[in-house]
Amino acid sequence: MDEILEILQKDANADISEISAQINIPEEDVRKKISEYKKKGIIIKYKAVINQELINNVSQDVTALIEVKVTPQKNKGFDSIAKRVYNFPEVVSCFLLSGGYDLFVIVKGRDHNTISNFVSEKLAPMENIIGTETHFILKKYKDDGDVLVTQQKEESRPIISA
């Protein structure tokens, strides 16, 4: 992967001059490349990674992982049913899987009820969906590469050494 993308993937906040200094490419060229990436849809958007657990006073969202079994439709395979599923705003991720289940759907909701209702009233009754299995997340340890449990790491490295 291009170094610019590698840097941005780690830190969406990295600015052009900073990236330019790190990879010794003129700022103008970095700027051009980034706008190209945006145009091509390679860079979709920039967002912050938020650790919900640390936000007080806000009732936390509940997340569920749902395995979905589907009968594929003639000529359309899984794509059209997947589309009907992922267009629900509650669905934050939707993957086609190999193995015993077909779709893997991650759903976020205000509480357990919201998600239960979504599954029983919207997802399960859909045509072509022949079964679902819902797993509620109890605790997030690590998400998308970021460790979310607070780690009290004693800094053992001396702050100066030869």
């Binding site: 490295r157 001396p158 702050i159 100066i160 050494s161």
Partner: peptide, 20 residues
């Protein structure tokens, strides 16, 4: 000098001789 560094708080250190 090292002792002085160690006695201070909130130091941003570029003085370390080992990987971070």
């Amino acid at each position: 000098f090292f002792d002085l560094v160690l006695s201070m708080d909130d130091v941003v250190s570029l003085g370390v001789g080992e990987p971070d």
